[in-house]
Design a binder for these strands. Structure first.
Lengths: 340, 340
DNA sequence: CGGCGATCTGTGAACGTACACAGAGTAAGT
DNA sequence: ACTTACTCTGTGTACGTTCACAGATCGCCG
């Protein structure tokens, strides 16, 4: 085959060698700029590279080097994540920044169907990545099992994987919820409710637990509105339910900022003033918090930091270090604004 | 080397052959389930695969097959895109769905710095992807030049690349803006302004042009507020400026739904009713539109469709078909709700 | 002038896979 | 019994690169 019609054959290191009148070895040395190559050879080779339009085939290089200089970033349930969770973008960028510094390529893989799961599993097994960061893994996930089986350096962000020996990085939802509820109480509120979301996830359950802890004897199960998701619409519904259950309510902890925004809407519609009649706090410190009227007091979620630490964990494992046991928990400062 | 301490050596097709007492060729036939292999050999090999824990090295396979079964998805300016543009997630998912159907792996690459640009360029040249989808390419972009140089099958979504011979898929911003402005006028509005964003991008400039077209002799340059981005805060600022310039204003076309949401806030703060005093329309039909009070009339942007068509274009080129000249423009239905 | 180190270059093997080909064995048709 | 066809298997080569090693050339010193 001379030239593949349609797509032209790419120049190889061999073509360059032929063109420059030297051997592969010398060309290789020039490309990876190693010593021990004469000035004239170097010049000839550089000219030849230009002439034949050579670009190295990294895939071939990786095959012999036994590493890819790439780390996968797996996103599960992209629908809910991209559209509801404002953190995912920040986590992505945090991880990318850390990997970039170490000259690693981050490749983001989306899992949106059964087909995707299998294909991504094949991709991970295929030697395209040296490690992997997983966001929002599912219970009993085939991807998690593959990672464990391959012994692929990994870091899970958001919540711990099924296999507790795999490293993860996250926040302590329980003590964060505890802290912000405590400060809400410190403002003098006594009838405090919670709009609790996503109780099937660790994050949701832990936030409720922290709330319960903080209230202690003041806790009243009737003042917990349970809603499915972390979304605005859930906040509206949850707040209405709470007001119906207890008109004298004077404080609310919403499980997310989006939920809190919905709660504010419902409170406005019910004619309550915030923070006058009712104090409201959220969780995430996302764009929602600054979009609310009044500005939302909330728990700052260090999303970029989570991505960064996850990347660093994978890089450390790649250097041969042992991953931390029990995972890494990042601190979550409380941001005190106007809503409570 | 017996076993690399730390990371164990992965089993190869050779190990399987040895374990099963057959040759590489036969193992290869079993893996790609080709005919002409005896039942006993097949059973022995499958058992051996299980025993040694073999998973094929796709990277090595790609090297000899000269294709990767993967398509890159490049995201520029991720900060603004992920945090402001609600469409990016949908485009991503649309593209992923189409590629998934053809059993291609989509790998998403983020460009967030100068380093990233170079690394991604190397990645594209390295033979890891058979084609590429680019969102929001920049003017005079090194990535675009690399793609052109390599002859990599590609599709640009959002706006056309510098090199007009590269295929792109987008919407007709100008005629969409024309259409919605015209319908706004049809509701009887006569003093109509626009909050025009991102005039340095094709999309922003075209939306303003469409608006101007539709107004014809009614057009008044004083009723155009120019703001830098498609964001909520820009909408608030733009609307205030517009009201200051013309208190009698009775209609507004906002360059995006986020901007429209900001405009609604500014109108509420100025004591104007919507759609009573002022009619408001947006652009995108994003989550913003349903979060507004009143619900927003807007131009539906077929984001998932854009991703899908871009993917299909790349796949078609991979099959050897010629890309459409001049690009593909998708239609943008107008969604009439309560704000105008 | 022989030996030695430094510099430069080419060659062969390896990475893990797919594919073409050759060869062996078996069954059926002439 | 001889061809023919079909089934099954193993071997060699290729993909594009890196790396270890073996030569070759040169200057320098004893």
């Amino acid at each position: 085959m001379v030239t593949n019609p349609g797509r032209r054959r790419r120049a190889t290191i061999h073509d360059v060698a032929l063109e420059a009148g030297v051997s592969r070895g010398t060309v290789s040395r020039v490309i990876n700029d190693e010593p021990y190559v004469s000035a004239e050879a170097r010049i000839a080779i550089e000219a030849a590279i230009e002439r034949v339009g050579y670009v190295p085939n990294t895939a071939a290089r990786n095959l012999v080097m036994q590493r890819s200089q790439a780390v996968g970033f797996i996103v599960h349930e992209p629908h809910s994540l991209f559209l509801e969770d404002p953190n995912i973008g920040e986590i992505l960028l945090g991880a990318n920044a850390a990997l970039s510094l170490a000259d690693f390529q981050m490749v983001c893989l989306i899992i949106d169907s059964e087909r995707d799961t299998d294909r991504v599993a094949r991709y991970l097994s295929g030697g395209f990545v040296d490690g992997v960061i997983v966001v929002s893994a599912r219970k009993n996930d085939p991807i998690t099992r593959i990672i464990e089986k391959l012994g692929l350096p990994s870091a899970f962000v958001g919540h711990p994987p099924d296999l507790r020996r795999l490293p993860f990085v996250g926040i302590d939802n329980r003590s964060s919820a505890f802290a912000i509820t405590e400060r809400l109480l410190a403002t003098g509120r006594r009838r405090v409710g919670m709009i609790a979301s996503a109780l099937d996830r660790d994050s949701g359950a832990d936030r409720l637990a922290g709330f319960t802890d903080a209230l202690g004897p003041l806790f009243d199960p009737a003042l917990v509105a349970r809603v499915p998701f972390y979304a605005y619409a859930d906040g509206v519904k949850g707040m209405r339910a709470l007001l119906a259950a207890e008109p004298e309510l004077d404080g609310v902890f919403a499980a997310s900022d989006a939920v809190a925004a919905g709660a504010l809407e419902a409170l406005r519609e019910a004619g309550r003033s915030v923070p006058g009649d009712v104090g409201v706090v959220g969780f995430d410190d996302s764009a929602w918090a600054l979009r609310c009227q009044p500005l939302l007091s909330t728990v700052h979620q260090p999303a970029a930091g989570l991505g960064e630490r996850a990347a660093e964990s994978v890089l450390a494992q790649l250097r041969g270090e042992e991953p931390e046991l029990g995972g890494i928990l990042l601190t979550t400062p409380i941001v005190w604004r106007d809503s409570a």
